[in-house]
Write a protein that binds this DNA or RNA. Structure first.
Lengths: 219, 219
DNA sequence: GAAATAGTGTCTTTTAGACAATATTTG
DNA sequence: CAAATATTGTCTAAAAGACACTATTTC
C-alpha cells in the first residue's frame, strides 16, 4: 500500500560524570556507518514492541543493560536525507541515569562523551542530541528532572550542584532549599546521613508516588 | 527487511469559535471507520514529503485548504492496537488558526466541535486530542501561543480575552499588559484602531521576526 | 578551637495582584 | 454629559535574591 518506511528509535542517554554532562555513544556494528560512534538505536519490532516506548526500553536494555531509567519521548525526526537507506523516521527518546549504573555494567560496550565537545555523528544524530540537550536544560529550569541524574539517595547540596552543572549557573543555597520545600517531591531518608569529613548531611530521595514536579517559576 | 509499518500524520487543528475552543474533524471517506468523524490525517508520501512536517502541511492543505498556520509537532503515537490495519505510528501535529480562515473556505468539508464535549473518535484520536489540548493550555500559560488564534491584527483586550478562554481563568487587565510589555513580540499597527461604540482601541500584530515568546513566569 | 560544610533566618529588592484614576469615544 | 471601553498609575502583598548567622562534624 505504501512504499516502505524505515522506523527506528534512538536514545540520548545522559549522565553527569566528573561534573560534566555526557551522553552514551555506541560504536555501530553494521553499515551504514559501521564502526562509527552513534546514538544507541534500532528498528522497531512490531511483533515484540507494544509501542515505541517499549521499543526504546528494549533497545536501551539490549545496548546498555539499563532497565527503566527516566525515559521520555523527545521528538520524531524524519525525512528522505537523514538515512542513506531511504526515507526514515526516528522516534527519539532521552533518558537520565546516574553514572554508577553505567560503570557497573561497562564492558567497554559504549563511550561517554561530553555534550559540549561531540565529534561529527552519523545520520542526524548531532541534531537529535542538540535537541535533547536543549530539552534537558529547558525542563531543568522549571522541574525536578535533574534528580534523575543522581543516585537514589542524595543530599540537598548534591542536588543543587547537579542543577548548577546542568544549567551552568550558580544558585543560592537558601533560595534553592526554599523552592524545594514549596514542592514536596522529596522525602528525608530516615536516619540516613551522608558522612564526610565534616558535618553529615541528611539524605533525601524522591517520594515514591512523586511524578515530575514543576515549579511555578523558574528554578 | 522490516515488517511493514503504517506511518501517518494526524493534525489537531484548533480555533476559537463563539468563545469556545474547538477542533476541526473530518468525516472519513474510506475504511477503516468510513463516514466517522476523525482528525485530519493521512499517509506520509516519501516521494512527495520532505519530512513529516511537510507531510502535515500537505495534509492540512488538502483536507482543509489551509496554508501554513502555526503548526508544531505534538507527539508520536504508536503501537499494535491503535489501528486495525496493524502496527502503526502517527506523528501528531497541532495547529492554531483564526476562525475566519476556516469559514472562508468552508464547503462543509469539516465540522467544528468543542474540545470539551467530543464524541468517541476512531483510532486513538481522543487520546491525541487530549494530549494536544493539554499542550495548548500548558504552553499558553507561559508563552505568546494564543496569538495564533486571533486574526493578524487584534486589540490587547481581544488578546486578553483569548488567553482567558483558552486557560479558563480571568486575568487582570493591568498585570496582563505589564507582562506583554516586558516581552516585545507585539507591535502597534500604525494608525490602525478597532472602532466600536466607544473609545477605539489600538490594533497590534506579531512583530515580523517574532518567534514564539516565552514569559519567565506564568501568564 | 579552627576549618569545613549543613542548615536556617533576616533584610532588601523585585514582581505580582488588586484596584483606582484618567482618557477617549459614541449617542 | 452619561455610558462604555481603553489605557495608565499607585498602593499593597507576595516572592525572590543576597547574605549573614547558627549548627555540627573532623582533626
Amino acid at each position: 500500500m505504501e512504499s516502505s518506511l524505515i522506523v527506528t528509535v534512538d536514545i540520548v542517554l545522559f549522565t553527569l560524570s566528573s561534573d560534566v554532562l555526557k551522553i552514551v555513544l555506541l560504536r555501530r556494528e553494521r553499515d551504514p556507518y559501521a564502526h562509527q560512534l552513534a546514538l544507541p538505536g534500532g528498528y522497531i519490532h512490531p511483533e515484540k514492541d507494544r509501542d515505541s516506548l517499549a521499543a526504546a526500553e528494549r533497545v536501551l536494555q539490549q545496548k546498555t543493560g539499563l532497565v527503566s531509567p527516566y525515559l521520555e519521548q523527545l521528538f520524531t525526526f524524519s525525512g528522505g536525507v537523514r538515512d542513506p537507506r531511504g526515507w526514515s523516521a526516528s522516534i527519539a527518546y532521552y533518558a537520565l541515569v546516574h553514572e554508577s549504573l553505567l560503570i557497573a555494567d561497562a564492558e567497554h560496550r559504549f563511550e561517554l562523551l561530553p555534550v559540549d565537545v561531540l565529534p561529527d555523528l552519523p545520520f542526524d544524530h548531532n541534531r537529535i542530541t542538540a535537541h535533547a540537550v536543549k530539552r534537558l536544560r529547558d525542563k531543568s529550569t522549571y522541574s525536578s528532572l535533574p534528580c534523575h541524574l543522581l543516585p537514589e539517595a542524595f543530599t540537598l547540596t548534591e542536588l543543587q550542584h547537579t542543577y548548577e552543572q546542568v544549567l551552568d549557573i550558580s544558585l543560592d543555597k537558601s533560595v534553592f532549599r526554599r523552592k524545594l520545600g514549596e514542592l514536596d517531591f522529596l522525602e528525608a531518608v530516615p536516619d540516613a546521613m551522608r558522612q564526610g569529613k565534616h558535618r553529615p548531611a541528611q539524605l533525601y530521595r524522591l517520594r515514591p508516588d512523586a511524578k515530575l514536579a514543576l515549579f511555578n517559576k523558574t528554578m
